[in-house]
Design a protein around this nucleic acid. Sequence first.
DNA 1: TCCTTTTCATGAAACGTTTTACACCCTTCC
DNA 2: GGAAGGGTGTAAAACGTTTCATGAAAAGGA
Lengths: 339, 339
Amino acid sequence: MNRIKSPTMKDVAREAGVSLGTVSNVFNGVSVSPAYKERVEEAAKKLGYTINRYARGLKTSETHVIAFVCPGTDHPFFGDLTNYINKALADRGYRMLLAVTQFIPDMEQRCIRLVSENKVDGIIALTYNPELQLEESIPFVSIDRQCSPTAPCVSSDNYSGGQLAAQKLYELGSRQLLFLSIAPKISGEPDKRRYGFESWCRASHVPFESVVIPDTDGFRPFLNILKARIRDGKPDFDGIFCNTDKLAYVILRMLKELGVSVPGQVQIIGYDGINMFGDPAMPCVSSICQPVREMAETAVSTLLSRGRPSMPTLICLPVTYRAGGTTRDREELAYIYER
Amino acid sequence: MNRIKSPTMKDVAREAGVSLGTVSNVFNGVSVSPAYKERVEEAAKKLGYTINRYARGLKTSETHVIAFVCPGTDHPFFGDLTNYINKALADRGYRMLLAVTQFIPDMEQRCIRLVSENKVDGIIALTYNPELQLEESIPFVSIDRQCSPTAPCVSSDNYSGGQLAAQKLYELGSRQLLFLSIAPKISGEPDKRRYGFESWCRASHVPFESVVIPDTDGFRPFLNILKARIRDGKPDFDGIFCNTDKLAYVILRMLKELGVSVPGQVQIIGYDGINMFGDPAMPCVSSICQPVREMAETAVSTLLSRGRPSMPTLICLPVTYRAGGTTRDREELAYIYER
DNA sequence: TCCTTTTCATGAAACGTTTTACACCCTTCC
DNA sequence: GGAAGGGTGTAAAACGTTTCATGAAAAGGA
């Protein structure tokens, strides 16, 4: 690690023949006479000077760095979210310190500690550790789970999403609904997908059933469940709401293998609004789409405007329905070739 | 932004009734008598002290932060890469500053500047700007493109990958090959996928053709090309190598729509080894897999061991072939239900 | 012309650490 | 019993900024 020492303000000051304070003023937009300003800028360019934000942060205690603590960027939803949050931050002159936790509760705690040491100006986190200790001194915004009564939480409107899924399935002709889900590690906002779904069904007198499988068991249980409900190629259900798009894909494949046609016999709606390859033009399952972009924007702006009088503690953003290949409201394929 | 001032070493020193230097020594593992050490640790815990890495960085000029400059985490390959690099860094006690460029050359330059101001200990970048100016004073490792004669570049062995694709297609029975690609914004390592493919075909006297479409034209040109080559439902080719998995998916859909069976009539191999939903158990196209994990590890360790005597300038890591649903060496589906 | 105001450059102090030189105490040994 | 020497704790000087109190010079008003 042999680093060439980079020039400092002092060097620039010497080169330009001005005082240290003047150089600082130039770089902070404080009024400086044009002659001096030019001299300083020239000297800075000549020396290849870049400001040392560590030193600045030490004085101002504003680092303009925000930490994002997330389970992993390999899942497309998190990848998307990371991307949008990064963009929202960059637009506001902030940089992102990324900490990946891989769903390990202990790691989540460690990450919070670590980024705190970096004196970030704030933390946005998507975590599953119910006992997470926050640093009181650092503004915090959570996603998809309320971590603390004082920390705002941003999520999609999971409840309405569940309702919307049920409603859409019904509108598109399904009369016997099924809710399938992998139970999240810990209760959080996404649980409401189910509550919304069930409440709509009950209110509308549409028969339904719910199946929740712990996330340790993998997908196989679903295959057995489906098998048991199919007699002579005829399933006793005709509409499924899966609590994630991933599960929707898996169920789609299973039904195909079991000889059930989708969306002909059974329609499927997922949740998330994942785009394959991050490209909205790619084929997809029908889905309740989380407003990822808006969630990112909201998380960031909420975090940065911390301290406002009445900060809501839970912010649910509206979801939308997207027709994909697993419901009967979409002609497949044509759309791929656009763009 | 009303931050509560967090305690400093000075506070800890006062609380513990010892000198500043002693506190520092405790936190740096310098030998301190047990009695003092305990007093300091107790005081630190009581005050909730965490070290200020900015201040430390100012003294040591080692920030233990590495910047990763990448086009975006929304594409699964980049999402994966980000994840692995993050892990590799975390394992070594480093944190990641993530800068997303969205493929905008100007943004790439700006990101390099910005992260330099943060005095990162190094930069890993995946960029497309041919005129990128690097900061001489900061260690730099590139991915997939040689940015400068002095900066090491890590990539998968694209050339061998191309060869392997051709060879596999042939082994699995294809006799008339096609190379399809979207031309990258700028020449780089991935171009070699084509060279490898073509060289194998020539050496093995297997007839082939190559089609390269600029990335501004979208996918439609491919549809026309395919149509023109299909007479009475019989294509004049029976094996395709696509330069990315994404393209492979698109081609797969197009062929399906055109009534060509895959892998029956035509086999397809992509490049990248993308997993749907980041999950290796999900269905996929047959592909030449980039060793993403190894690339990440190599990039990180190369960067951190900067200054070694003979640093190779280009490091190509071996690729592997993965059977998916688009070649005849794989029974579809069964594998989804495992795990 | 003289006095007041405004503008703007300066130098020093501070931010929270690390590091170095130094002083201290306790052994150990002749 | 005194000198030499190994720990260990202390104080002060950095690191590269920002900021604040001074003071000088230029500008404006009568």
